[in-house]
Each structure stands twice: as structure tokens, then as C-alpha cells.
Design a protein around this nucleic acid. Structure first.
Length: 277
DNA sequence: ACGAGAACCTGTTTGC
DNA sequence: TGCAAACAGGTTCTCG
């Protein structure tokens, strides 16, 4: 599910509720498939207050008042949702339940497919953390420029689509926004990354930035699992030009069936065969 | 070193 | 209708 816009939306939603609040008990239920929950998670978090909630790539960073940092990744199907403690009995995929100390609110980490994870580190260790260490540039930061990307794509033999999904290069783009950004830039996902021209890269960089910003404004894209921290759905899925629209006409092609689906590196790529060359 | 594919899970949709 | 296959927003490991 969650790519940069979804994780950003969840982080902002959690920040509103959590900053300044203390955690009471934490229910640790079933760990994910990628990583066991850290040893003593419940004990280490209990009684700590939240200082900030931020995002790096597709990770949510919850900073605590003693310098610890909770690091959450939502995988494909993960949610972090705030609710009333007794609103409903726990779902079988509620893997972590954080109870707040001074209200009846809880934050539930729910993840049916269990590709998500939650780790505990410290502010000092954060830059060296194995999950964050090799992450690339933040596409919404000013240092993400056409000149920078041009240098990185030079000589790359893989497809431009695969390059956009490489988190060591650009951090936070996933399958949906890679497809949508390439559509906006008029570049076929099948093109060899190293062959994308300077001119095209000058279109691609703002296309990436704009599609991510537009999606954040819309609260992300809800296809199936994703919801905001409040439980509300996102609605950027209504603005997809190509993603999931195989056989339809793209917004620029009045009629017909210009949108194709191809599989690259095991993932579906959607593109308009008329506008993207 | 690089790039493609498999694997990790569960749930839902599609096709025979 | 029923069952099996395909497919899903991600990441990491293995193999050529």
C-alpha cells in the first residue's frame, strides 16, 4: 500500500494525536514476517512521551522523550490507526496496540500480510540504522534536482521504472507513483534509465515532485488496506491517470484503449502507449 | 557489480 | 457453484 504520500499522511495524523502524549502499556501480539519485534519493546516504551512523529522514505519515525525512536514500516498492507481503546475487540492482525496514558485512545499497528515492521533505536543510532543507512534522496527536498538525477541515471542499464523504485536512489516512490510520474513526464517505463535524455529528466523531476504533493493533498491513495491515522480513506486513487486502468483511455487520449500493462521486475507497469515514448 | 527473479505473508479477485 | 490461479501499495536475498 503505502508509498511516500501515504506514509507522510499517516505520520502527520499520528503527530497531531501523539505529540506530548505518554504511552501507557503496549500490547505486543504477533511479529511481522520480516523482523521480530525488538526485545523488551513494551517495557522500553511504557511511560515515555512522544516528542515528534516524522517520516524518512516510507518509514514512520516516532521520537520519544528519552532519545529512543520507534521506527515503523507499513509494508504492503500495514495501518497505524488511532481509536478508542474499547471501540472494538482486537482484530487478528492488530500486531501492536499502544495505549495512551492520559486518555482512552490507542494506536493500533495492523498488518494482515505482515510485510511491515516495527523496530526500536535511538536518535544517535538513527543515521547508522541498517534500515535507513542506504536510503537515497528525499524527492520533496530541494536537493532533488534534474542535474542530480541525471548524474545518477548515467550508464544505468535497468529500466527507468526500476530505477524510480530503487530506494537507494530516490526514497519513497512506489509502484503507483512511479507509473503516474512517468505518465506525467511522457516517458515509457520500459526505457533504459541511462538513455533517458536531459530534457526528459527535466520533466521527470517536477513530475515526481508534483504527483507526490498532489497525493499528499488528497490524503494518499486507498486501494484496499490503506487508511489515514484517523481511519479515513485517501482519495488520490480517483486521480490516477494510468495506474490500474489497463485497456482504458488516458486523460489526454479522448477515446480508445491507450493504457497498457506490462510486467517489469515482477511488478505491473501501466502506461499510455501514445503519450509515453 | 549489476540486474532479474524468488521469497516472505494473507486476502481478494478472476478464470476455468 | 467451486476451486485454483493470479494478483496486490514493499523489501531483501539469491543467483547468473
Amino acid at each position: 500500500m503505502p508509498e511516500l504520500p501515504e506514509v507522510e499522511t499517516v505520520s502527520r495524523g499520528l503527530a497531531k494525536v501523539l505529540v506530548g502524549q505518554r504511552f501507557a502499556r503496549v500490547e505486543v501480539r504477533r511479529a511481522g514476517a520480516r523482523m521480530a519485534f525488538p526485545e523488551g519493546l513494551a517495557e522500553k516504551v511504557q511511560g515515555r512521551a512522544v516528542v515528534s512523529v516524522t517520516r524518512r522514505a516510507k518509514y514512520i519515525l516516532i521520537e520519544l522523550d528519552d532519545g529512543q525512536v520507534l521506527l515503523v514500516h507499513l509494508g504492503m498492507s500495514g495501518r497505524m490507526v488511532v481509536g478508542r481503546a474499547n471501540a472494538a475487540p482486537p482484530d487478528k492482525h492488530d500486531h501492536l496496540i499502544f495505549h495512551l496514558a492520559d486518555s482512552d485512545l490507542v494506536v493500533k499497528f495492523n498488518d494482515p500480510r505482515r510485510f511491515g515492521l516495527c523496530d526500536l533505536t535511538t536518535r544517535e543510532e538513527l543515521p547508522n540504522h541498517s534500515l535507513l543507512r542506504d536510503l537515497g534522496i528525499e524527492p520533496l527536498e530541494p536537493c532533488f534536482t534534474a542535474a542530480w538525477l541525471e548524474g545518477k541515471l548515467q550508464g544505468k542499464g535497468t529500466s527507468i521504472k526500476a530505477a524510480l523504485l530503487d530506494q537507494r536512489l530516490i526514497a519513497g516512490i512506489g509502484n503507483i507513483y512511479a507509473c503516474e510520474a512517468l505518465y506525467r513526464a511522457g516517458i515509457s517505463p520500459l526505457r533504459r534509465a541511462g538513455d533517458v535524455t536531459k530534457e526528459e529528466i527535466r520533466r521527470l523531476v517536477p513530475a515526481i515532485r508534483d504527483v507526490l504533493k498532489d497525493a499528499i493533498k488528497a490524503g494518499g491513495s486507498t486501494l484496499r488496506d490503506y487508511v489515514q491515522a484517523t481511519g479515513e480513506r485517501g482519495y488520490f486513487q480517483h486521480n490516477f491517470a494510468v495506474y490500474g486502468r489497463e485497456g482504458e483511455a488516458c486523460p489526454a487520449c479522448e477515446k480508445g484503449t491507450c493504457i497498457k500493462r506490462v510486467v517489469q521486475n515482477g511488478r505491473s507497469s501501466f502506461y499510455c502507449e501514445v503519450r509515453q515514448k
